[in-house]
């Protein structure tokens, strides 16, 4: 780690009774989702009942962390809270089939393409939390670069 790294500024996630498991896992660098204990379907955003079989039993399972980019934007004005420079925000479709809004890091905004494969990384936030972000899928032979807020 870079010893002179700045304190994180990115906003901490908003915790609710239903979302806390997700963000707590992210802080431990795990990318997880709710999965119905009875019919096995993933569901996101989290909810207390499976819309397919109406079971209230659920498992929290760790995911592949892989997905693809469906859309991407750069919020310029007003300046987003928690960022020195405009971040890239995208909608990611995970390999498990649900969509999530996150940041796309380690690639210039102009170089992103539709359905570009990405993989999860974790960015620190205030209040000592971490949130899942996505970067271009690396080749297995490449060494993984450490992940920081601004890369």
């Amino acid at each position: 780690m870079n010893e002179t790294a700045k304190e994180p500024t990115q906003l901490a996630p908003i915790l609710t009774l239903e979302s806390k498991f997700f963000w707590d896992a992210a802080t431990k660098e795990q990318f997880v989702c709710e999965k119905c204990s009875d019919c096995g379907q993933f569901r996101f955003p989290p909810r207390p009942m499976c819309p397919h079989c109406h079971s209230v039993k659920r498992d929290i399972v760790e995911l592949s962390g892989k997905g693809k980019v469906l859309s991407w934007i750069k919020p310029v004005h007003p300046k987003p809270i928690g960022f020195d420079e405009p971040p890239t925000v995208g909608v990611i479709e995970t390999d498990e089939g649900f969509r999530i809004v996150s940041n796309i890091i380690d690639i210039a905004y102009e170089d992103i393409t539709f359905e570009m494969p990405v993989e999860v990384a974790f960015a620190p936030t205030v209040k000592n939390k971490k949130v899942p972000v996505f970067r271009p899928l690396s080749n297995e032979n490449d060494s993984l670069s450490p992940v920081g807020g601004e890369g």
Binding site: Q10, L11, A12, P13, I14, T16, S19, P45, S71, I73, P75, P78, P80, I81, G82, F83, P86, P87, V89, G90, V91, I100, V101, S102, N103, T125, V131, V133
Partner: peptide
């Protein structure tokens, strides 16, 4: 709420996604 930590914090950003 799932958009906020990532800098999508206004109606304009939510629409643009």
């Amino acid at each position: 709420s799932w958009c906020m930590p990532f800098g999508a914090q206004t109606p304009a950003s939510w629409e643009s996604l």
